[in-house]
Amino acid sequence: MASIDLNSDLGESFGAWQLGDDEAMLVLVTSANVACGFHAGDPTTLLGTCRSAAQRAVRIGAQVGYRDLAGFGRRFIDIAPADLTADVIYQIGGLDALAQTVGSAVGYVKPHGALYNAIVHHRGQARAVVAAVVAYDPTLPVLGLPGSVFLAEAEAAGLRTVAEAFADRGYTPTGELVPRGLPGAVLSDPESVAARVLRMVEHAEIEAVDGTVLTAPAESVCVHGDSPSAVAMATAIRARLDLAGVRVEPFV
């Protein structure tokens, strides 16, 4: 029987500003990419998200990113590798401390936003992120885009790599994510997204914005928690996978 991990970006509210419905998403996903305070999230929010995830036996991942609250971590920063390594260690450690106080712990690392996209090709920053994970805990898996230099560097360093696909993001013909702001970058129709995910799981295929069919083997599929229709999409995905007999469970 086929299986897939379903992950979502959570813990992204900040102070009085609420973003997404974490409680509803935690009922549907099996892994939570929890913000670490650099691109989003404040300590109280992060602690609450970790507590809710732990109560539902949802795996907690550290979603590390650039220090860019104003830009939500979606702007590239030309940061020195040594500084990036230190920033990532700091983020993993902070979230791990919060998670441990509620009986859980950080179980994997996933870069966020502009950092995620940069290290598809930016080898220097990819190596910096890998160095941080190795320094903090070399048993932690890392999530990334198939074919990225990040996953290549992580594998070379002995880290467990997890190939990820995106339920609600458009793909270019070369297998990268369509930049936000361009046509087809963000998808929002629950039923079409659910059908897309089932195709990913059953056939390891995804259709790019120009109709090109890409090979997309993935162990985890992401539904962005800040999308207006995030809960509806995740609900439709779970229903479609359940109907097809696909197990939704954390990656091993």
Rank of each mutant, 00 (worst) to 15 (best):
V134S: 07
H122N: 13
V134I: 06
V130K: 14
P138Q: 15
V133W: 05
A128M: 03
L140R: 13
L115H: 12
A135W: 07
V134R: 07
R127E: 14
V134E: 02
R123H: 13
R123M: 06
N117I: 14
V133S: 05
H112F: 09
R127W: 13
A118V: 12
A135G: 08
A114K: 09
P141N: 12
A135M: 13
L140C: 13
V134N: 01
H112A: 07
G113Q: 05
L115M: 10
A131C: 11
H112M: 08
R123K: 15
A126Q: 03
G113C: 07
A118F: 15
Y136C: 03
Q125E: 11
Y116A: 00
K110P: 13
A118R: 09
Y136K: 03
P111G: 02
H112L: 15
A135E: 13
H112S: 11
A126V: 05
N117V: 12
H112C: 14
K110Q: 11
R127Y: 08
N117C: 08
L115R: 03
P141C: 10
L140A: 05
V129S: 00
P111A: 06
A132W: 06
G124T: 04
A114T: 12
A131D: 06
T139L: 13
A118Y: 12
A131G: 05
H121N: 13
A131P: 00
I119R: 01
V129M: 07
Q125F: 08
A128F: 02
V134L: 09
A126S: 04
D137F: 04
V130L: 07
L115E: 04
L115K: 06
Y136G: 03
A114R: 10
G113M: 12
Q125M: 09
V133M: 10
V129N: 00
I119F: 01
G124N: 10
V120T: 10
T139I: 14
A126W: 00
I119C: 03
Q125P: 14
V134K: 15
P111T: 00
P138W: 14
T139W: 14
D137V: 02
P111V: 05
V120M: 13
P138F: 10
A132T: 05
L115D: 04
L140V: 14
L115S: 07
A118E: 04
Y116G: 03
A135R: 10
K110W: 06
G124V: 01
A114N: 12
H121A: 14
A135Q: 13
L115N: 01
V129P: 00
G124A: 08
P141I: 12
A126I: 00
A131S: 05
D137W: 03
A114V: 15
K110D: 14
